[in-house]
Design a protein around this nucleic acid. Structure first.
Lengths: 184, 184
DNA sequence: ACCTGCATGTAACAGGTTACATGATTCG
DNA sequence: CGAATCATGTAACCTGTTACATGCAGGT
């Protein structure tokens, strides 16, 4: 029950068409909530049916025609309700940790290369976030309306920092020891 | 495509029935890959059909009868293959960050209480992990076959540490400022 | 006229969640 | 015998993923 609220947030920030939303879900919003265009169109239809958003009139409701949406008061109310409602944190579900645990049983052969690749990917993501921070939140301007957005970005930076450090640590004690539990 | 491999790993560590697996997915394995008993039974059926595991014979295949499974060689091979195969990290998808971004638009009313609750939950989880670390991985015994398991636990500890720190930081600059973008 | 790119969709499927159903065992 | 508990399962649904379909606009 989060995708509709992600879309409401995006549309409140700026009314958009499906494709524009898709583009924005590949960038800023997608940093913590990704979605494909198929999901977005499906959800836009639902939200419109529920009266939370409406299409801006542009005459043609035809197929290849751009169609922009804006949030209705009911949509804003629903988003505010959802934002304030108590929600339990979802338990972690991470493939890489699972693979490490599996490697303890079937052996580590071949795993190291992918760990290195992940490390490189996380380093790149971290650099990208830090670049955004430099650009959008320089130390001097600390406007209160930026605080929440900066906080979200900090979470991204800290998470990528965690992954790079943890992967470095993992790789450090990886290559040399035979690491128990081979194919027996 | 991870649940079957989580189950294979669990069964290699110790052959079990569906319910026993469910219990283990509420503890150690569930710390990074959770699953309900419905998922587990469904997946056990599939894995058996594919010849990766088999039921230990106990005469009754009846409904209320315990049924234990063990991993076949094909299952072990598949797990080794999957563990070594390259996989892209899944993009982050976090509700709390989304709610913060939404709060930047519709206002922060009511959010703070749930942030406090999350902080408390993460603190508890962190304490639990640290307790496990003290119990299972004391500094003196550093057996090589424990290394990978310890590494996985460290990831859990570091992640919970991140959340507690980030949430503390978030709450610190939260209460006082009016935080732009109220219900207008 | 044709091709490429933009834009909106449909369909089928896989994985996860929730609610419920059924049989066996144990304990009062 | 009845209730509680253990154990295995079914069914319906929701979300997310992948592959494909359709219409329009602009360039050559």
């Amino acid at each position: 029950m989060s995708l509709p609220h992600a879309i409401l947030t995006a549309l409140l920030e700026k009314p958009s068409s499906g494709l524009e939303l898709t583009r924005r879900f590949d960038k800023s919003i997608g940093y913590f909530w990704s979605a494909t265009h198929q999901q977005i169109y499906r959800e836009l239809g639902k939200l419109e049916g529920e009266g939370l958003i409406r299409a801006l009139p542009a005459e043609q409701p035809a197929r290849g025609q751009k169609k922009s949406y804006e949030v209705l008061p009911a949509g804003r109310a629903e988003l505010a309700r959802w934002t304030a409602a108590a929600q339990d944190p979802k338990p972690l579900r991470d493939t890489l940790l699972l693979r490490l645990r599996a490697a303890a049983v079937v052996g580590t052969a071949g795993l190291e290369a992918d760990l290195r690749r992940h490390l490189e990917l996380h380093r790149r993501q971290l650099a990208e976030y830090e670049e955004i921070e430099r650009r959008d939140f320089p130390p001097e301007r600390n406007a209160p309306e930026d605080r929440l957005r900066h906080l979200v970005l900090r979470a991204g930076i800290d998470l990528e920092t965690f992954w790079t450090q943890w992967l470095s640590h993992a790789l450090a004690e990886f290559p040399e020891p035979p690491a128990g539990g081979e194919t027996d």
